[in-house]
């Protein structure tokens, strides 16, 4: 995907009615620089990696694999993983399985409300290439067209062990400073938005959900 500098300084919010436009912010999101001193950034990344709060939003059938993670058998809380019911406070979005167009709209909305740095783990075959729903009229086939994905876990469905492994790998990547999905999203904002609007036909929300 190539980077296109946008000429507009604000968003159009064309999907909103005139009086609703007054209620929502039309500012463009800006990419954020890491801390100038590398040691501080590394320390911050260590903290981020060891405190992953998962947004409790089950988007599809693979989300059923999220629940055992908290039970006695797998106990993800020893790695600092916790569920968080509000997007404002969570840092990891686990896309649980197939994503229908209707859900995609909510996913975009929740993802944009999360505060950076934020990470996406896409679970199962369906977000990767459509999986068994590759010819469905209502589920998307390539999730990374619409939002930046840090890690794919394949399988239909993946076992909780696979998800736990993915979380550990995500921690390693975060510590290495490789997970920069939030900035990638903002740098290629116009491409991502165009892809989203190509499938979400009733766009009745602001262009960026602050």
């Amino acid at each position: 995907m190539k980077k296109t500098p946008s000429t507009l300084s604000t968003l159009e919010n064309a999907g909103l009615s005139a009086e609703d436009q007054l209620l929502f912010s039309n500012a463009r999101p800006r990419p954020y620089e890491p801390y100038p001193i590398k040691a501080i950034e590394d320390f911050a990344n260590w903290a981020r990696a060891n405190s992953l709060w998962i947004l409790a939003f089950g988007t599809g059938c693979c989300s059923i694999e999220l629940r055992p993670l908290m039970t006695a058998r797998f106990d993800a809380s020893r790695f600092g993983v916790a569920g968080r019911p509000t997007p404002r406070q969570s840092s990891v979005f686990i896309i649980g399985g197939y994503v229908s167009v209707k859900t995609l709209k909510r996913i975009v909305r929740s993802y944009e409300q999360m505060q950076g740095p934020k990470f996406i783990i896409a679970l199962g075959s369906c977000p990767a290439n459509g999986g068994m729903y590759f010819d469905s009229y209502n589920t998307i086939n390539q999730f990374d067209l619409y939002l930046p994905v840090d890690l794919y876990v394949t399988g239909c469905m993946p076992r909780p062990e696979a998800l736990l492994g993915a979380i550990l790998e995500l921690q390693d990547d975060i510590k290495a400073g490789k997970c920069d999905g939030a900035n990638r999203y903002i740098e290629h904002f116009d491409e991502y938005k165009a892809n989203q609007k190509k499938v979400i036909k009733d766009w009745n929300m602001p262009d960026y959900n602050w």
Binding site: N50, G80, A182
Partner: peptide, 28 residues
Amino acid sequence: AKVQGRIGIPYRQPFINILKTLVKRTAV
């Protein structure tokens, strides 16, 4: 956690949580 048969969070977890929320890059 022990009652439920789990290992539970490490003792440093609350400190890391505070640190992590403090070093978040964005806020509205």
